[in-house]
Each structure stands twice: as C-alpha cells, then as structure tokens.
Write a protein that binds this DNA or RNA. Structure first.
Length: 138
RNA sequence: CAACCAACCUAGAUGAUCGCACCACUUGGUGGUGAGGAAAGUCCGGGCUCCAAAGGGCAAGGAUGCUGGGUAACGCCCAGUGAGGGUGACCUCAAGGAAAGUGCCACAGAGAACAAACCGCCUGUUAUACAGGUAAGGGUGAAAAGGUGCGGUAAGAGCGCACCAGCGUUUGGGUGACCAAACGGCUUGGUAAACCCCAUCCGGAGCAAGACCGAAUAGGAGAGAAACGAGGUGGCCCGCCUUACUCUCGGGUUAGGUCGCUAGAGCUGCUAGGUAACUAGCAGUCAAGACAGAUGAUCAUCGCCCCAAAAGGGUACAGAACCCGGCUUACAGGGUUGGUUGUCAA
RNA sequence: GCGGCUAUAGCUCAGGGGAUAGAGCACCGGCCUCCGGAGCCGGUUGCCCAGGUUCGAUUCCUGGUAGCCGCG
C-alpha cells in the first residue's frame, strides 16, 4: 500500500514539474463543480470553478452533443486542451475547473477559441495577479 | 465529339518547431508506431466468454423462400432461369403454395364468385305487360368468368374450326429452375409485404462478457439429515443442478488495479484449378490498442476549386473502443478499364 | 454496449386497408355585452421522409431521419 502511494505521488510531482495538465475525471467531481461552484462565460465557452483543498488545479473539459458530430467535438476538445496547456502556469492553483464549449464553438477557428477562453478566464478570478493586467490587450 | 451504362481505384503531399498515447532501449534521453472506406447505422452472420454438461423432445415465437454453386456462417456473393423496364450497353424483382382451409374485394354496378339478368337481342301469349331463351352489344368498375377471326343460330354461346394465351399428358434437352415439340379436353378471378400451409434454420446474454488481486455489513467449502417437497434451468416435459436444519473449517460480492487486448477465417505477391464468387500451394510481412478515452497548434512550399487576375476564401463524408465476414446509409474532387447510342469526317 | 418506444392540427391524444382523418384546449369571424370574460353558432390548419406490396396506404413491408426512455 505504502509504495504504491509513494509511486503515484512521485508520478504526480514529475508531471507537475513537466507542466502537464492535471485532469478532472470523475463524474461526481463534475457534478460537484456544477452544483456548488461559481461560473463565468464568454461567447464560446463557459467556465465553472470551485476551490479544492489541493495545492494544484484540476481541469476538466466538456463538449455537448449539440455542438457537432464526434469529429467536431474531438477537435474542440483538443484545441481547448492545447490552449489551457500553454496557459496553465498563469492559472491559480487550488481549483477544480470545468471548461464547457458553447454552441458557437463549432464555427470558430483556433484563434477565436483562444481569445474567448482567455476572456472567460480573465473574467473569473483564476489568473495569477501579475498576469491579469496585460491580458486585456490581447 | 456528345450523352450514357458497368466494374473499380483514390480520399491532398512535403518539411520545420512545440505537444499527446503506447511500445522498446534506457533511466529526466533516444528511437519506432499511431483512425476509415465507410471507423457510422447496429440491420444480419460468426469467433470468443459466461449462463448447468449447453444435452434430448414438444409447443410458441422469429427469420428465410426460383435453381445450382461459394463460404466458418449468413437475410451475403457468383453463375443461370423466369417476369418487368430501356433503342441499346444494361438495370430491377420478399420470384414457394390461391385445386388444404378461412377471410377480404369499399364506391359504382343487374351481377365481385356453387355467377348473374339492368338496358338490350330473339321467340311466344290473353300484348305499354308477362313467360322462356341468350351472354354477342351497352353501361359500371382496378378487376365482369379465355382473346381475335370465320362458320353457325330464331337470337346467341368453345356450339364447331384456325391461331394465340392458360391447363394437363408424353417425348427430347438441361444437375436443376426451366426450355422446345407433339397430343388432349375446352377452363379452375385477385389478394399470402391478410390469417395460413409447406420446406429449411434459430437456446440465452454479451468484453460494462469473463478471470485474477484486494478494506468494511458476511458469504464460501466439507460432512450429516431430508429428498414425495421447494427453487433453478427467463414456456413445458425428460434429464441435470441447488436447497431449509445441524456440525466443522477458516475468510468473501461493490469502488479501485491487472489481464482479457490484439498474429487474425490477417495483409501483400506469384503459381495452379474454376465462366465466376472462391479455393489450394509457396514466398514475404507484423501495421493503433486508449479507459474523461491518444492525431492537435503555428509556419512555409506545391496541388485542386471559387474569382477576369491579384488579394482573399475554401479543400467532402466523417474519429478506432473485443475481433472478423457482409448489408445499408453519408460522401467534395480526381482517375483507370470495358462497352452502348447518336452526330461529323475519312 | 445492449434493449425498447414514439412521430397525426399551434398543444395533448383517438383512429390499424376504401371516412370529407376525429375529440378537447388554442386561434379567427359572428351573436350577446357599455366593454371584457363566460355562453351560443361557424371556420382555418395536419398523417416525419423515400421506395415497394395492393385497384387503393395514415394504416402493411423495407430503408432512413428526429426525439425520448430503460439497464449496467
């Protein structure tokens, strides 16, 4: 029991050092964030977030079936993951975050989705303080 | 040259920088591999796993339905037969049985199935009517009891004859569906994607199957007793299995992790057999394996399309989830081969 | 992944081979009222799509589309 836990901890630390995403996976965690968390939105995405008691943030993605077929949904999810991967060092640790695509996201390209996602993050209080002011110019 | 028919193929390419999943070597690195022709719909058929050993019989239910072949199997494929369509290349067809039985055929029409008699036609009589004969003509309908012609008759009728269609028999050809010829008598509406009959086939559930590891409420194994009973075997019978109660032994379903998980009716090429589907042999080869679920972002060049050009924009349908064989549906553009018809020229 | 159900008027539902496709609510017009409501009279609008069987299909068969539900 003990070595297994140690092993998992070391993997997590390694991933954290590698700037890899910590993902939110279980369905009950999603439901908890939807029920108890706050949210902010832009035209293409909605962000729900809730403080967890960890020293890092976990991020989950959600694309509804109404947005498009499976190719479209997969593409949007990959793009959102790419955006958040590049932006992850600027996000405040200690939150469970769910990013959902809205209906217009199937018509947007990468830049549009990038801009909308950053706007939504800026409207929430999830950005580290010194990163907040220059983002408005983006 | 134009229009068309059939069988197929392809599914943008290359490079650079970040990034993801798995594997190998290694230990903060390097290398390799990384969606489809439909991966889809889940409409069929299998493999595999468990359900009792997945056994026998009956019933119900379901499926299929011209013939022969192919296949692990199929509702699939190939070759043929018949029917229908097209000038043609060619295409389409759930295509067994209506003489086993039951039902239905609205409206119109005299009559819709053991035929019938409204108007007609013909004959007779006590004559604006009645009786008898008739199924040629009219009319209705999707369909009116073989069709056309000649003879025949009071008027008519397969009443007689010829041809055609249908039925039956015989002969010949074909493995067979069926085809051809001769002869016979003179006739038996449609509907089975209405019930049904006949022939053949089908046990159920599904990788979230299932196996192993492994905390809590408690299950399991062995022995005895009982065994006529109860329960299970997703309908019944046989057969089979389990079981209340007592004693002994010691430890189990769910969340989670590991396996199942990709070398297979595999792919490529050649040879041989077969009209073909396909089969056999030989040689080469290993090409995704996740579990919130891996393929993305940026840039450059060349293709193709829109646009007179540039700029600019676009580049189909669509994402593996245990694995195969089919079917169906979606699909921008491009290409190959063979063929038909028409026009022009030689 | 597997299994099932539904599609009929603006809404909720009947109808299961031959009807002009029906009921309630809704909507429109008229009567009534000073006006409105209620009541009475009348009317508009429809069988998810494409093929097939049949003389004839909302109904039967096949394929698709959309929506909904259940199990784990």
């Amino acid at each position: 029991m003990a070595p297994l836990l140690l092993c998992r901890a070391s993997i997590r630390g390694q991933k954290w050092g590698d700037n890899t995403l910590e993902r939110l996976k279980s369905n009950s965690d999603f439901g908890k964030v939807y029920r108890e968390g706050k949210y902010s939105a832009d035209s293409l995405v909605v962000i729900h977030y809730l403080p967890n008691k960890l020293d890092y943030s976990r991020i989950g993605f959600s694309v509804s079936k109404k947005v498009g077929n499976s190719v479209m949904r997969n593409l949007i999810k990959r793009r959102m993951r790419e955006i958040v991967r590049n932006f992850y060092p600027h996000i405040v640790p200690g939150y469970d975050i769910v990013i959902s695509a809205r209906m217009g996201a199937n018509k947007a390209n990468f830049n549009g989705l990038n801009h909308s996602l950053r706007q939504a993050l800026w409207r929430s209080s999830l950005l580290i303080k010194e990163e907040r002011k220059p983002k408005s110019g983006n």
